[in-house]
Design a binder for these strands. Sequence first.
DNA 1: TCTGGGGTCCTAGGACCC
DNA 2: TCTGGGGTCCTAGGACCC
Length: 358
Amino acid sequence: MAVGEPWVLHVDLDQFIAAVEVLRRPELAGKAVIVGGRGDPTERAVVSTASYEARAYGVGSGMPLRIAARKVPDAIILPVDHEAYMEASEKVMAVLRSQPGATVQVLGWDEAFVGVQTPDPEAYARQLQQAVLAETRLHCSVGIGDTLLRAKVATTFGKPAGVFRLTADNWLDVMGSRPTVELWGVGTKVSARLAKLGIRTVAGLAACNPDDLVPEFGPKMGPWYAQLGRGDGSRTVDDTPWVARGHSRETTFQRDLTDPQQIEDAVRDLAAHVMDDVAAEGRPVIGLTLKVRYAPFLTRTYARKIPETPDPAEVLARALDLVAKIEPGRPVRLLGLRAEMTMPEGSRQGHTPTRSGW
DNA sequence: TCTGGGGTCCTAGGACCC
DNA sequence: TCTGGGGTCCTAGGACCC
């Protein structure tokens, strides 16, 4: 078999969550399906995924469920079922790993990078799509690139169920005139700050001097954004298992809390769940962050390093210390608790594009 | 229209040390 | 007595991703 050049493939399942729901309830095929929260549009919750039929009405991820239900009155609204998606995800990743010569870096439930040496990446991508479909009955789109970033962005143009190639050769032709917010790692805030500097398009970002971005974005992020504009970055797919730095739990209350006892009880509850996740990995806790959203939308975080401990009772006591920082009498809409853990030697860090390894 | 829940990493400023 | 300059650690806040 010909060895060929190294390529990065980015595999992204099409409307993954909705597709999994349709698989086990075939009568939903072709209908507007919305998955979010506990499936109750009267609750405070948001859309996890909408089927293409629902998206046609303007429903998208992150939209309040209440609004989505209003836009599509006859939509079928389902609760989020993490276990089902996890199971489907593991099947898909197993198929990717079984492809000849594939190195697989998982990015989330429904996407992964696949590194491979092949003379014909399109043929490889098609073969991969067929294998995933045959084994899981799920469709995916594939982006082909000479960097991780270009492969990731290429997938957008392959949807649904297609293949698209983006390399140094066609990057500016395809992306140059598009707004910077279409880059992976540039959101609305950063694109607005770039616009303030007169940079609106990917071509504009690609052409700028990285040093000119340092005063606005700092020594790391400035040059990083310039690199994004060029589509450059790592070409290495890393299959080292990812290890979480921490675990957190959050709850949004259907009614804002003001009673100190209720607030304390809620934190005890969060701590118990967080420590379940921590205990499953057997690493000690070294820090805590309490997140408080005061109604309507003011978020505060209170953080503290703690003496390294694996003991849930000790962690709970430190969490309750942080509760003292919550402003008394002010309505609380959301509470979150995050525990940071020690990291094992040599573990891969980061799973977001903007950070280490890119 | 009114915004979930799980993550990661960067930056700034103050405290402290040499 | 007052001061430079560099480093680390900690906390708070922000941005982004799925």
